[in-house]
Write a protein that binds this DNA or RNA. Structure first.
Lengths: 207, 207
DNA sequence: GCGAGAACTTAACGGAGTTAAGTTAATGTA
DNA sequence: TACATTAACTTAACTCCGTTAAGTTCTCGC
């Protein structure tokens, strides 16, 4: 009897429809302006139906972000697979991270800039299969490669990775938050300069 | 007739009481969990009274943050007045910035991590007397001093200042957001390493 | 004594996230 | 085929939010 399977497929389909509707509203209007009621309206179900598929709004938007960040991991993976020396890999990865954040500002904000809801299990985030951790792992592997190639100054690889992440997060989040609210120099100059500064700062020699 | 003066004093007093109550709730519970009603309850006035003193919630919390960030500016000013070479000044300033953010996480979040309400006049932020800009000016002056002392590599002072700011903002905001949600290395090592990386990255020679 | 205005409150609006209870339709079982 | 169970979904409601319009009270200047 394929009935059960069909039911399951239908359930998964609606779940995906919710995710898609939420994602679209999310991209267009940002976290603050996405309400459960509007998502429900979009898929033409009652608001309470969403709660049959997601525990609450936070869990729903968490899943929306997971979907998007899988794309970042894929992009980083592609960079790692291309030929090039480790430092070049690292630089391209850092640039891709920033670019990704600027292309998906609402997702980036929801994932890395919003307060973690209280009572939320923070241990969840540390799991290596969470999309944030997966992306961080690419960075970490890059750093290990650079250290193996004797390109970096003598320091804990973990501290270097975290420094680089905080560096790219800094410029990404500030540009997202103050796109117009601050007299930025040209992004096309600023972003590569930030990446160069970071990589140069952890390198054995100036580059 | 000192009556008008007394009235004005009373009005200012209540305004300050609102600010203090808001600030206290803010520090204790964070932006999300401060409601106009709760602030009103704390000062034992009706919620609508607050609107006689502040246009809306955003303006109130903006003022709360201004107060706090005046403290940062004062701290940075003190650092600049102490003896020391410009690079040392800069490093101490960057460290003080991070420390200030970690000491006032809710204020820092509200000022630098929250989405700017739509319809908000973003030009307001660029004004040089806004507390954010004032603090940024200390950084900028440090950078100019370092360039004058021929310590930095040849680059636009503006781009260097913005790079350094985004660097300290990155580590500050990530540590605020994921205090427990990420396997950080020891902050006592990480934070100085970040500052060293940034300064070294923009320096003429490795340090 | 009276009118004006300042200071503050009451009551309400519309919207948010969420939940409890109810409805409907399909399924498995006798 | 008749009945009980369950899944899927909706209706109605609760509590809370920011904010506003209207009303009240009190004080001051004339």
């Amino acid at each position: 009897m394929g009935v059960k399977e069909r039911k399951l497929r239908q359930k998964k389909f609606l779940r995906q429809e919710i995710l898609d509707a939420a994602s679209e509203l999310f991209v267009k209007e940002g976290y603050e302006n996405v309400s459960m009621r509007r998502i429900a309206e979009k898929i033409e179900y009652s608001p309470t139906t969403i709660y049959l598929y997601f525990k609450d709004k936070a869990e729903l938007l968490e899943n929306v972000c997971h979907e998007t960040f899988a794309l970042l991991s894929a992009r980083l993976k592609r960079i790692m697979e291309q030929p090039g020396d480790p430092v070049e890999h690292l630089k391209r990865g850092l640039l891709a991270y920033i670019q990704f954040g600027l292309e998906n500002p609402h997702h980036y904000r929801a994932t890395f800039m919003m307060p973690i809801p209280e009572g939320f299990d923070q241990e969840e985030y540390k799991k290596p299969d969470s999309p944030g951790m997966q992306a961080f792992d690419f960075l970490r592997r890059c750093v290990y490669d650079c250290i193996a190639a004797n390109k970096f100054r003598n320091a804990n690889p973990e501290i270097i990775s975290q420094t680089l992440w905080s560096g790219v997060h800094g410029i990404t989040s500030l540009l997202i938050n103050y796109e117009q609210g601050f007299p930025w120099v040209d992004q096309k100059q600023l972003i590569p300069f930030v990446v160069d500064t970071l990589v140069s700062g952890v390198s054995r020699e100036h580059i």
